[in-house]
Design a protein around this nucleic acid. Structure first.
Length: 316
DNA sequence: AAGAATCCCAACCGCAAGTTG
DNA sequence: GCAACTTGCGGTTGGGATTCT
């Protein structure tokens, strides 16, 4: 059964608030303070339920509410906090003075969620979509078996597979790092990860030390997420090339230590250059959209729908 | 120009936790 | 300890505004 809705059957008004109602509510709270929301409508002369008054006040009339578009910084903060807290809008709101949970929730549902999806990330986990990675070996096997594609396309597929393997491997390294970071007993193991990355030529010594200073589990346990919110992992770039790891061209030879073999045969392949893809993008939340507030993002189209579409088009 | 489709956000609903008597 | 009441939270919806065809 449960308690009946507070506005039902009382002849109380619902729906959009008029300016007179807003004025009555504001005047009353200015003079008397908030007090009991239950009693407030009667005392303020409003034909509304207390709940409706509370929502109107907290989401719209409160004097300290910041109006207008979300700044790029606010957007970044929401993305990072959401990757940590999930849909805990009230908790996220505490880090954005002047914004309401309703406003942040709406902004997430109408903008940021779509943005993550477009970036090829799962909006719940903020991780790159595994389904696309998982499908690649089958696609490649299909292409090789059926001889449905020409050599050029086959090489492209192999190249994609290597890229996928790299991403997969890097992801596993990062997951290891994350596990270590949250396990107080394994503090020494982070060096193994950084050594591995260095061995792959992905991390300079200075970047290694930066990686080693990831937020400690103790910081995570407390209420202060600031270290993580503002923290930035180092970008991974190929030394001396000016390009990132995932832009590294696939050339002659094979890469077997990654679990895939890619023989590109006659030199450099011509698959579409993958965009800049840094470790900070991957960890910070597939989570951290680059680009500007207008949505001119510069990040992570890797495995995005359009990228996958292009891939499938070429396969076809 | 007009109708359809989509976007956006204020407001609602129901549940759960906290408080009070 | 318990029931009634209050408040806060997160998910969802309705409808106006905007964009597309």
């Amino acid at each position: 059964m449960g308690r009946p809705p507070c506005c039902d059957g009382n002849g109380l008004k619902k729906g959009p608030w008029t300016t007179e109602e807003d004025q009555k509510l504001t005047d009353y709270i200015d003079k008397q303070g908030r007090g009991s929301w239950r009693q407030l409508p009667k005392l303020a002369g409003l034909n509304r339920c207390g709940k409706s008054c509370r929502l109107r006040w907290t989401n719209y009339l409160r004097p300290d509410i910041k109006r207008g578009k979300f700044s790029h910084e606010e957007e970044q903060t929401i993305l990072r906090l959401h990757s940590i807290l999930g849909n805990k809008w009230a908790a996220i709101t505490k880090h954005l003075p002047g914004r309401t949970d309703n406003e942040i929730k709406n902004f997430w549902n109408t903008h940021l969620r779509k943005k993550l999806v477009q970036m090829g990330c799962d909006p719940t986990t903020h991780q790159p979509r595994d389904d696309l990675l998982a499908a690649l070996p089958q696609l490649i096997a299909l292409a090789n078996l059926g001889r449905l594609v020409d050599d050029h396309t086959a090489r492209q597929l192999q190249s994609y597979a290597v890229q996928a393997a790299k991403l997969d491997y890097l992801k596993s390294l990062l997951q290891s790092a994350a596990t270590i970071a949250t396990s107080p007993s394994s503090s020494g193991s982070i060096s193994t990860i950084t050594t591995d990355l260095q061995w792959m030529g992905l991390l300079s010594a200075s970047q290694s030390s930066s990686l080693s200073s990831l937020p400690s589990p103790r910081t995570m346990e407390g209420t202060d997420y600031q270290g993580l919110v503002t923290g930035q992992l180092p970008d991974i770039h190929i030394p001396g090339t000016g390009s990132s790891f995932f832009q590294q061209p696939i050339t002659n030879g094979s890469i077997q230590n990654l679990g895939y073999t890619a023989n590109s045969g006659d030199g450099e392949t011509s698959f579409p250059a993958l965009p800049d893809f840094s470790i900070s993008n991957l960890v910070g939340a597939c989570g951290t959209s680059g680009g500007d507030a207008e949505g001119n993002s510069s990040q992570l189209p890797i495995w995005s729908d359009s990228y996958f579409d292009q891939f499938m088009t070429e396969l076809a």
